[in-house]
Each structure stands twice: as structure tokens, then as C-alpha cells.
Simulated assay, not measured.
Amino acid sequence: MGDGALSVWERSSTVRVVPPARPRKLSKVPFVELADGRLQGVVSSGSDIGRVYVSSVAAGTYAFACSTNNNRPCGGARGTFCNHIRALITEAVLQYGAGRVARYLKVDTGEAEPDAASLTGAMTATRPAQGDASAAAPVFSRFLRHLAYLEFEPVTTPLPEMQWFPTTRTVA
């Protein structure tokens, strides 16, 4: 590649979609992403079916935030990871694989094959601080936008708001 030749993915406008590392159930953590320098997502409440929490862990510092969809702080996130954040980490490992989550969050567990528990343990051992919950609104908004696509009838015609997605094409 050093001679100026570009790989196939560099010459195209498409991004490879990575399939989940393992299947996961969406009822507890319907939305999880590695984005904006954080592991973040939406976690269902264990006690109220109408409530969800927006949880996040920052890469490197492990600063964490957890609040309801209407910006009320999580009662369990006082000085350490709450159960919502622990569930988010577990589902992220299922979605992306422990290695990818560890690299993204910059977690060194000292293990060749880390799991969700070892990642969580390594992060909480650093005594992370409670972080800024300002990311909750954009994360929840992206989650709602994803949910809106479930309401569409299956069609084969293009959707105007999805036209930025790459189409299948051959790169010469």
C-alpha cells in the first residue's frame, strides 16, 4: 500500500457492516454503539416498562453517566457503575466482541481473551468519575430514529432519508 495503491474499501464509498459477534436479545439493551469516544446506549428499566436509561462510558477515563430518557439521574450510578452500565458493557461485548470493546475503551485487562466481567472489573478498579450526561439527548435521539424504521412497510423502492447509504457496486 505504500506505493500509492489504494485498497478496495479506500476506493469506494461503502463501509463494511460488521455482523454481531454473537446474537443478543434486544429487550434489555435495545441500542448500543461505540461512538463519539464512548460506549453508549439505551438500557431498559428493570422496574418500569415505560422507562429507559441512556448510559455511557468514556474511552480512556471510563467516566460514566446514566440517566433516564427525561434526564433524571440514575439512582444506582453513585460512585460506581450501575446495573444499567454493566448491562450495556455486557451487550456491547456480545455485539462487537470483547477485543474490539477493550480496544475502543482503551481497557487493559491483562488477559488474552477478556470478557464483559473482566472489562468491567478493570474499568471500575480505576475508580472512574461520574461523567457528563450531556450525550444522553443525542444518543436517545439516534435510538428513536432507529425505531422509526421499524414502522415502515417493507418496500423495494429507495427511502429518501436512507439514500446516503451505499449501494452495491463494483469497484474497478
Rank of each mutant, 00 (worst) to 15 (best):
D48Q: 07
E153G: 00
P138W: 12
A129F: 09
T156G: 14
A137K: 12
K106E: 11
R78C: 13
A129W: 06
D132A: 08
Y96S: 00
R22E: 15
V43H: 07
Y53F: 15
P30V: 10
N71C: 12
T61Y: 03
Y104N: 04
M162W: 09
P158Y: 02
L105Y: 05
T109S: 05
G50C: 03
Y104F: 12
A148Y: 00
D115M: 01
S118F: 03
T90N: 15
E111F: 11
G97N: 06
A136Y: 00
A21M: 09
S118C: 01
A125Q: 08
G75W: 09
V52C: 07
V43K: 07
R38H: 13
A122P: 02
C66A: 07
D108A: 14
A77Q: 11
G76W: 11
V43E: 03
T109E: 12
F152K: 09
L34G: 07
V54N: 03
A35Q: 13
A148P: 00
S45M: 02
S56N: 13
P158M: 04
E113V: 12
K25I: 01
T90I: 04
S44R: 09
V139C: 09
G41Q: 07
E161C: 06
V32L: 07
M162E: 15
T109P: 11
S134C: 07
V43R: 08
Y104W: 02
R142C: 09
T157S: 13
A117I: 10
K25M: 05
M162G: 15
V54T: 10
H146F: 01
N71P: 02
T156A: 11
A63S: 12
R51H: 06
T120W: 11
E91P: 00
S118T: 15
A125N: 02
C82V: 02
Y96Q: 01
P160N: 10
P19A: 08
A35P: 04
R78N: 15
H146V: 00
R24E: 09
A35G: 04
Y104T: 01
R145V: 08
T61K: 05
D115N: 14
A117K: 15
T109W: 10
C82Q: 05
N70W: 13
A122N: 06
L105D: 05
T80G: 13
